[in-house]
Amino acid sequence: MALTNVLDITGLMLSSFGTLVLAAVGLAIIFGMMRIINLAHGEFIMIGAYATAFSFSAGVPLALAIPIGGLVTGIVGLVLERLIIRHLYDRLVDSMVATWGISLIFAQGMLIIAGPSFSDVPTPLGPISYGDFSMSLYRVVLAASAIGLLIALYGIYTYTTYGRHARATMQDEETARSLGVNTDRIYMITFFIGSVMAGIAGGLLSPIVSIVPTLGQSYIIEAFVTVIVAGPSVILGTILSGFSLSVVNAPVSQWAGSFAGRVALLVAAIVIIRLLPEGISGYWMEGGE
């Protein structure tokens, strides 16, 4: 009994961690590297989920439909960056209001195009059993994919030319530009990557949500809280932040219900920021330097 309880909570934590990190990762890149607060981030996730669900219902296997969701969202992001976002660099708050406008347009646009609901994607893989109990194997897959995405990002930002240029631009844009880095292009690619990540997250989450135009709204708060609690380091911060918040959220939800879990998550975010005013990774980076 005790063991199954531990397994229950572990499963919940994995799923909570996976959801938080997936919801946050695209936002973390765009906010962390470009100082753009993308309030349309939830709608990017929604577009990824729709593209995935649409491909899936057209007969594409889920494993392929998810990257398609990422790509479609990436292209949408790229177009937006060229048309709108690039005018908003260095205008943190303006970017918020503009992307709020974009989120209204996307959510309502999707409603007009696809109607108030779309057929759901079934959850793949089925249950795994332990004793009398069982849980969805897909929860493990979600958490693993979340970590996989972060590792991929780590690779991109450590080993590619773009990644080095991007980090240079982030640290000191003018110097980077004077050394021949095309910072405009760097921003464009960064926004594209952030959008792809949001789209892939939407694809991965699509089997466990209702495919409705407002689905992004349920992720925007969690995404924001995770990103801000993470602090300045995008990858390490997101992992730590997702971990700390799910460690609080999962057991409280299990023992005291989803409502208490929800409140506990928000309270945990408040307390962490109060104790570490630069976010979790801000504390670590200070220690490291």
Partner: peptide, 20 residues
């Protein structure tokens, strides 16, 4: 109209881009 919300979004965008 179903486009009302869309119009509001477009207006917000326009204002932000035009009046910094």
């Amino acid at each position: 109209s179903e486009f009302s919300v869309v119009a509001l979004g477009v207006i917000l965008l326009g204002v932000i881009l035009y009046f910094s």
